[in-house]
């Protein structure tokens, strides 16, 4: 995921490649030397605490913001150099990028006009996202979830092979989240590139194939979700402190949770053998799937910070 040695576009015509991206607002560095790749056929989750630089990175990808150094490309080209950008990239960046006095249908028709898309596609998508009946109502009367659905419909308008979605699940009800997840999974299965930022870590566990984790603008971890969620071993022992010391000395990562130890980096059989050799009685030795949230907090080194409504706040100029 983090390799950047390949030629631009070397990951396929629709891969998103971010290379050594740095962005500052005044003295504040929002994104620092960030590199990663979001590949076609995969859903890439873009994770990080509030203010970690996810939205800014997405705006740079889409040429809505400039960067001090580095670059972000889609299929090896900057967004502004794509021949018909909205036919290649669909984006959802702001849940409130609508005129409140305009109907949802007219909002979509404006996008269709600008992108040269048949207006019949507008009705089709409004039905798809469940806004068929509300299409002629003012967007100002929509709930957050409905606005999110409308934004999502706008991202899908050109049937693009690349989707860049900033917190798309914000405000959606469980059914809406489920539908969106199915739709994004289906698009990735069809060979499309899907990059989704979210603070909903549990949602990422169900959605993402790959993860890119940011903290304070820096990449802290990237890779396939399955690898990042590596199985840990839960151990309960008579002399847990001594066992922890012993396993850590052998290179395992051990976290203490009360009397229980969560051990990573050492096969379960080896843990049992070492405890046996040391004469430590084990009361429990079982696989323990660490939640992504647990790992996320470990990577970012701080409790997750989020607003009450779950929206992200980033430093702006």
């Amino acid at each position: 995921m983090t390799e950047t040695e390949a030629e631009p576009g070397g990951y396929g015509p629709f891969a998103i490649e971010v290379e050594h991206l740095t962005k500052r607002y005044g003295e504040h560095t929002v994104v620092s030397d960030l590199s990663f790749v979001a590949r076609p056929g995969r859903v890439t989750g873009f994770l990080g605490p509030n203010g970690s630089g996810k939205s800014t990175t997405m705006k740079i990808m889409l040429d809505l913001a400039s960067s001090e150094s580095g670059r972000a490309t889609i299929g090896g080209r900057r967004y502004r150099d794509l021949p018909d950008p909205t036919a290649i990239v669909g984006a959802l960046l702001e849940s409130n990028a609508f005129h409140p006095g305009r109907s949802g249908r007219n909002h979509m028709r404006i996008l269709a006009d600008a992108d040269g898309i048949d207006l019949d596609r507008v009705d089709e998508l409004l039905e798809l996202v469940g806004l068929g009946e509300a299409a002629d109502r003012r967007v100002g009367a929509y709930s957050l979830g409905m606005r999110q659905r409308l934004g999502f419909a706008g991202a899908l308008l050109g049937d693009p092979p690349v989707l860049v979605l900033d917190e798309p699940a914000n405000g959606l009800d469980p059914e809406g989240i489920h539908e969106m997840r199915d739709l994004l999974r289906a698009r990735a299965a069809g060979g499309n590139t899907v990059l989704v930022s979210s603070h909903l870590l549990s949602e990422m566990e169900l959605l993402a194939d790959d993860l890119v984790v940011l903290n304070k603008g820096r990449l802290v971890m990237a890779g396939p979700l399955a690898e990042l969620q590596e199985l840990a071993t839960l151990v309960r022992a008579s002399a847990s402190a001594r066992l922890q010391e012993l396993l850590e000395a052998e290179g395992a990562a051990v976290e203490r949770e009360g009397e229980e130890l969560v051990v990573r980096g050492m096969p379960i059989t080896e843990i049992g053998e070492r405890a046996f050799d040391a004469g430590i009685v084990l009361h429990e030795l079982s696989p323990h799937a660490g939640s992504l949230e647990e790992r996320f907090l470990h990577w970012t080194g701080s409790p997750e910070r989020r607003d009450e409504d779950g929206t992200e706040e980033e430093v702006q100029p």
Binding site: L64, L93, E94, A97, H99, I110, A114
Partner: peptide, 10 residues
């Protein structure tokens, strides 16, 4: 209203 965003994306 932020509606310039889809305009600049197009």
């Amino acid at each position: 209203h932020g509606t310039v965003i889809p305009t600049f994306l197009s």
